[in-house]
Design a protein around this nucleic acid. Structure first.
Lengths: 156, 156
DNA sequence: ACCGATTATTAAGGTGCATAATAATCCCCT
DNA sequence: AGGGGATTATTATGCACCTTAATAATCGGT
């Protein structure tokens, strides 16, 4: 009895074994991670009336009352034109008001409204939850390491 | 001549010291990192006729000739409708062709064209360069750690 | 031989970013 | 002073990418 011939002629090649040439690419993995972060955000902030970008702008305004649009653009690495649109949304929602700067009439100073400050407490809580879910696959030490690496990568 | 008035009444409060409440948020930092990755991509792939999303689809097709749209959607965590549009772009560019599956007439099997295979060699080279630039702030060990953490975070 | 499930595609909508054009103000320099 | 380039903000427009809903074709089990 020569051979039990247990193997087919061609390589078996599991059908669902997909080769992922980008599985080692940091940039690609970051894009996937961002997709997931976006999903988590939407699940948790559904009905709160803010988008991820709008939320990040709002967070900066609450933490820095009187901040100017240009400073937000720089901090978030987006163009001022985009900030203006997002601020419009926050103003429409009654969360933020624009105020004139006496010493710099070109600029507008951004402040949370009373309703905005109230709404922020809830949003801040939800945001922490959302982050926890996002990083649920990592231990606290790994999460801290992850944040450190991201900040180092972003610094320049 | 009452007062020289050298100091303003309120605290000086360094103007450029912005409080970033999201600086410890993994999800927010991932969003910033993705912005940078996008920038690097565009700088390096300018004129190559592919977008980041299109490139990731193309990479999967080259690495898995005959792959089906549904499998790509699953792998990239996007909806099949989105894959169809991106494949249309690759077909228009002459990089990919659709082929009928004899055993599954609903499905289309995706293959790189000859021109696609040729173009891929260049793109693969550029992609490695792009990744290197993206992670330039990290040591090789850190980069490896970063990839490991991302994969762990994404796995579930 | 039907009928629900699967696969793919198109159509329409929304978010988030960009660039370009416009407007108002500021600041320096002669 | 007063003119002109730089700064700040905003609006308008467009593109990339993702979604859901609707349509079409095929598959597979009863």
């Amino acid at each position: 009895m020569p051979k039990p011939a247990p193997e087919p002629e061609v390589a078996p090649l599991r059908e669902n074994a997909i080769v992922s040439p980008l599985a080692e690419s940091p940039a690609f993995l970051v894009r996937l991670a961002q997709l997931r972060a976006f999903d988590e955000f939407h699940r948790n902030f559904a009905g709160l009336g803010v988008t991820p970008a709008g939320f990040s702008v709002f967070a900066l305004i609450v933490a820095n009352p009187g901040i100017r649009p240009g400073a937000i653009a720089e901090e978030l690495r987006v163009k001022p034109s985009n900030v203006a649109v997002l601020v419009n949304g926050l103003v429409s929602a009654g969360l933020v008001r624009r105020e004139a700067d006496q010493a710099e009439l070109r600029a507008s100073l951004l402040h949370p409204t009373a309703a905005g400050s109230r709404a922020w407490r809830e949003m801040d809580r939800i945001q922490r939850e959302t982050d926890a879910q996002f990083a649920a696959g990592l231990t606290p030490a790994e999460r801290s390491q992850f944040v450190t690496l991201l900040r180092k990568l972003l610094h320049r």
